[in-house]
C-alpha cells in the first residue's frame, strides 16, 4: 500500500453559474478592438464605422431630442402590438391545451401561419388596416402571436397530470383547476416563450416601419441604410440591441419574482 495516489477529480462542470460582468467585458473588448482597428486602418471605415463616431451620432440624437422622437412611437408600436399578440396567443394556447376541438382545429392553422414571413404580408395589412398605426400593430401582433401560442400550449401540456388528478379528487371546480393548477403550472413555459415572442416583435418593428413611418427606430435605420450612412445605421442597431437586452432582463426579473417556487 505504498503507492497512495489521490483520486483524480472528474466531476463538476455542465452547470453554468452566474458570472457577473463577463458579458460587459466581452462587449467592451469587442468595441475596443473595432475602435483600434478603424483607427489603425486595418479595418477600413467602409467595412465598419468607428465606434466613437457611432457614439457621437448617438449623443447628437440625444441632444437634438430626436432619440425620443424615434423611440416613443417605436416603443408604443412594440408595446401595443406585442400586448395584443401575446395576450391573444396565451388565450388561444390555453384553449388548445384544454379543449380537444380547439387543438384539432387550431394547431394546423398555427402551424400554417408560423413559417410565413410576416413581412411579406405587410402590403396586405396596409390594405386591411391602413397605412397608419393599424397595420404596424397588426404585423407585430401576428408575429408575436404564433410563437406565444406554441409555447403556451406546450406549457399547458407539460403541467403535471397528477396535480390535475389531485385537484379533481378533492372536488375542485373546473375553473379552479384551470386557475390554480394549470395556469401557474404553465407559467414557466409561457414566460420563456415570451422571450422569443418579444425578440420577434423587435425584429418586426423595423419591418413595420418600412412603410409610411416618418418616425421610429426602424424608420431611422432604414433611412440611414438607404444613404449608406453607417454611423447612423449602427446607432439605430445599437438602440434595438439595447431594447432586446432590456426586455430580456425584464422577463428575467418577472421570472425571478413569479417563479420563486422553483428550486
Amino acid at each position: 500500500m505504498s503507492d497512495a495516489r489521490p483520486v483524480t477529480f472528474r466531476g463538476g462542470g455542465f452547470r453554468p453559474t452566474a458570472r457577473r460582468g463577463t458579458g460587459i467585458v466581452v462587449f467592451v473588448l469587442l468595441i475596443a478592438v473595432i475602435e483600434w482597428g478603424t483607427r489603425a486602418g486595418w479595418i477600413s471605415n467602409l467595412t465598419l464605422p468607428r465606434p466613437s463616431d457611432v457614439a457621437r451620432t448617438f449623443v447628437d440624437l440625444w441632444n437634438t431630442g430626436l432619440l425620443f422622437q424615434h423611440l416613443v412611437p417605436s416603443l408604443t408600436r412594440l408595446v401595443v402590438g406585442g400586448a395584443m399578440g401575446i395576450t391573444a396567443g396565451i388565450l388561444v394556447g390555453v384553449m388548445i391545451g384544454l379543449f380537444s376541438y380547439a387543438r384539432a382545429g387550431l394547431v394546423p392553422l398555427v402551424a400554417a401561419i408560423f413559417p410565413i414571413p410576416k413581412i411579406a404580408l405587410l402590403p396586405l395589412f396596409v390594405i386591411w388596416f391602413g397605412i397608419d398605426e393599424g397595420s404596424k400593430y397588426a404585423l407585430i401582433a401576428l408575429g408575436t402571436f404564433t410563437p406565444t401560442v406554441v409555447a403556451t400550449y406546450g406549457a399547458v401540456d407539460n403541467v403535471d397530470r397528477t396535480l390535475i388528478r389531485m385537484g379533481q379528487s378533492f372536488g375542485l371546480s373546473w375553473m379552479s383547476i384551470v386557475r390554480k393548477i394549470v395556469l401557474p403550472g404553465s407559467l414557466p413555459g409561457i414566460l420563456s416563450g415570451m422571450r422569443v415572442s418579444v425578440a420577434i416583435g423587435i425584429i418586426l418593428l423595423v419591418a413595420a416601419e418600412m412603410l409610411g413611418a416618418e418616425y421610429g427606430v426602424g424608420a431611422y435605420i432604414l433611412q440611414a441604410g438607404a444613404l449608406y450612412d453607417l454611423e447612423r445605421l449602427f446607432a439605430g442597431v445599437v438602440i434595438l440591441s439595447v431594447l432586446g437586452v432590456l426586455t430580456s432582463w425584464m422577463i428575467g426579473q418577472a421570472e425571478k419574482r413569479l417563479l420563486r417556487w422553483r428550486s
Binding site: 397528477t162 388528478r165 389531485m166 379528487s169 378533492f170 393548477i181 401557474p184 417563479l259 417556487w261
Partner: peptide, 14 residues
C-alpha cells in the same frame, strides 16, 4: 373520498 398520493401531489408554487 379523499386521496393521499404516493408522490405527494403538492402544488410547488403554494
Amino acid at each position: 373520498l379523499t386521496y393521499v398520493f404516493q408522490d405527494f401531489a403538492l402544488l410547488p408554487w403554494r
